[in-house]
């Protein structure tokens, strides 16, 4: 029994992965991904997220030095900051739209 359940779990994981891939495909195909990106881009600029994060980036650049800093250096330090600094309303709105899209997809 246990193994079956475990297997089920594993199956689900694969199914999840497959579902993810297909959702992603749908996102790109329908153009929803682009629309979401555009919406998010505008909201982030408006809220000053971009400027704030830019300041952090410059800090990293200063530390690593102009000559040697790589994209990976920046990505490593800035990605968590980027997630942190997003205003709640922006995140909420995007999630709302994503969920709406998902709901739409499951109905099809």
């Amino acid at each position: 029994m246990q193994t079956t359940i475990m297997a089920d779990y594993g199956d689900r994981k694969i199914k999840d992965a497959q579902m993810r891939a297909s959702i992603n495909q749908k996102l790109v195909e329908t153009g929803e991904k682009e629309r979401l990106k555009e919406l998010l881009r505008n909201k982030l600029i408006e809220s000053g997220w971009r400027d704030e994060l830019k300041a952090h980036c410059k800090e990293v650049v200063r530390r690593k030095g102009l000559e040697h800093v790589t994209v990976d250096d920046l990505v490593a330090e800035i990605t968590p900051k980027g997630r942190e600094l997003v205003p709640d309303e922006v995140k909420r709105e995007l999630l709302h739209r994503i969920r709406a899209f998902l709901a739409q997809q499951s109905n099809i």
Binding site: M19, L40, R83
Partner: peptide, 22 residues
């Protein structure tokens, strides 16, 4: 799933900014 999609989106934005700065 929504959260994951969200994370992907925001990370993409961040990556874009990193590219710009770089």
């Amino acid at each position: 799933l929504a959260e994951e999609i969200w994370t992907d989106l925001i990370d993409e934005m961040t990556l874009g900014l990193c590219f710009d700065i770089h």
